[in-house]
Design a binder for these strands. Structure first.
Lengths: 122, 122
DNA sequence: CTAGAGCTTCACGTTGACGTGAAGGTCAAG
DNA sequence: CTTGACCTTCACGTCAACGTGAAGCTCTAG
């Protein structure tokens, strides 16, 4: 499929797909005329990219993680083993981030419940 | 205290404190010469601002939430009651965000454990 | 063969939360 | 009274992940 079809299928812009290629996250084939050609596997990769970016990872990190997500068996590609320490650091950052969000969530909950009590009590 | 002292005390830059004032989050007093003057209460507010911003809220939202966090009693200021619906929407966004982070966290955990199994098994 | 939908590569614009000087005023210490 | 640390207000720079044209090539339908 070509870039427009993939974009509509996964719900991203064509510009984003070209950007992912520029950053080395998603390398399509090419027709003789130079058109980008994508497969179903590319579509799956784009969905993974969106999830990782949405979690706040940057493109450099996504590029490292992506090849480690394809071999979904029990073992890992050799290059990925060397990155385990980095992945653990990133996991800790995510844990910290989740904790921050939980703090703000409870603060919001306190305000919301006090607000409901206030509007109910008067 | 003046801006430099507050900045060092809470661990932010003076530029950030001026930016918070520009955005209406933190309004200091002024000396006759025009120097900004902050109190301990301002310091507490800055800590709240940092937490909210770190959670991904923007300055507009922080400006709305801040006055609702000071009255830590059971009830709320009247202006805050009208914002409860907006706070609930923001809480849902935070819940979504936490769920996204959990997804990425488990993906990372899968990779890390597979990596440990791979390096242990050979 | 021509219109037009879709593709290509530049290349500059956007957004939010600041960083980073520039040019100058204020104030306590020596 | 002068240094120097601290402060003031502009005002442009930064960074990431794209958005948004511009100018031109390609392919299919009629």
């Amino acid at each position: 499929m070509r870039i427009g079809a993939l974009a509509e299928r996964v719900g991203v812009s064509t510009r984003a797909l070209r950007y992912y290629e520029e950053k080395g996250l998603l390398i399509p084939g090419r027709t003789p005329a130079g058109y980008r050609v994508y497969t179903d596997e590319h579509a799956a990769t784009v969905r993974r990219i969106r999830i990782l970016l949405a979690a706040g990872l940057n493109t450099d990190l996504v590029r490292e993680i992506l090849p480690c997500m394809v071999d979904d068996g029990e073992f890992l590609a050799p290059g990925c083993v060397d990155l385990v320490a980095e992945f653990e650091r990133e996991r800790r950052r995510i844990d910290d981030r989740i904790a921050e969000l939980h703090d703000v969530r409870s603060a919001l909950t306190g305000i919301i419940e006090a607000g409901l009590a206030t509007s109910a009590g008067r």
